[in-house]
Amino acid sequence: MAEAEEELAHAEVLELFQAALARLVQDPLLCDLPPQVTAEEIGSQVALEYGQAMTVRVCKADGETMPVVVVQNASVLELKKALRRHVQLRQARQGGVQHLSWKYIWRTYHLTYAGEKLADDRKKLREYGIRNRDEVSFIKKLRK
């Protein structure tokens, strides 16, 4: 009997949490976020508002642009991880392919900014001159 009470309490808490989250994303600052928002996405949006983060627009060859949020002093590797998370969240919401081989993707594609490859994962984005709302291209590597 105690187990059933715990489950009911958990369900009630979950329902309250989702209701509060729905109210939260109606805030003008957060209204662009999807209904199934994650705590990470809310944190990123707040960090953007306070100037602690920036949006890097990653452009694919097909013309799609993905807005990826990273901290102000992010490295190339942190941008790659944020891009991976962005794609995974989008796929989960759309019910698309659930698994991509990111090892294969980074062997086959690279990121460029103003014609320069972002080759050093440890280098900061700002060292390449990347600022808030700048566009980075996602380009297929040429075979040697």
Score class of each variant (00 low, 15 high):
3 E>H: 08
134 D>M: 10
91 Q>M: 11
121 D>K: 01
16 L>M: 12
48 L>A: 03
23 R>A: 15
48 L>R: 03
108 T>L: 08
119 A>L: 08
122 R>F: 08
125 L>Y: 02
15 E>S: 13
80 K>L: 02
46 V>A: 05
12 E>K: 07
113 Y>E: 11
19 A>Y: 02
1 M>H: 01
91 Q>T: 05
98 Q>H: 04
123 K>Y: 04
17 F>K: 06
117 K>L: 11
88 Q>V: 10
36 Q>T: 05
49 E>P: 00
105 I>E: 08
45 Q>V: 09
136 V>S: 02
38 T>Y: 03
26 Q>W: 01
96 G>C: 03
64 E>F: 09
52 Q>D: 05
17 F>N: 03
95 G>D: 13
66 M>F: 10
79 L>E: 08
116 E>L: 13
30 L>H: 01
121 D>Y: 04
122 R>K: 10
8 L>T: 03
7 E>F: 11
128 Y>P: 05
70 V>K: 02
19 A>M: 10
63 G>H: 09
72 Q>N: 05
11 A>M: 09
69 V>I: 15
23 R>H: 09
80 K>W: 02
91 Q>Y: 01
115 G>F: 10
5 E>A: 14
102 W>M: 04
140 K>R: 15
24 L>E: 07
133 R>S: 06
83 L>H: 03
46 V>S: 01
45 Q>C: 10
138 F>W: 13
106 W>T: 04
142 L>W: 01
90 R>D: 10
75 S>D: 02
9 A>I: 05
49 E>N: 10
8 L>K: 03
135 E>Q: 07
48 L>Y: 07
112 T>I: 06
48 L>D: 04
36 Q>S: 14
34 P>L: 13
16 L>H: 06
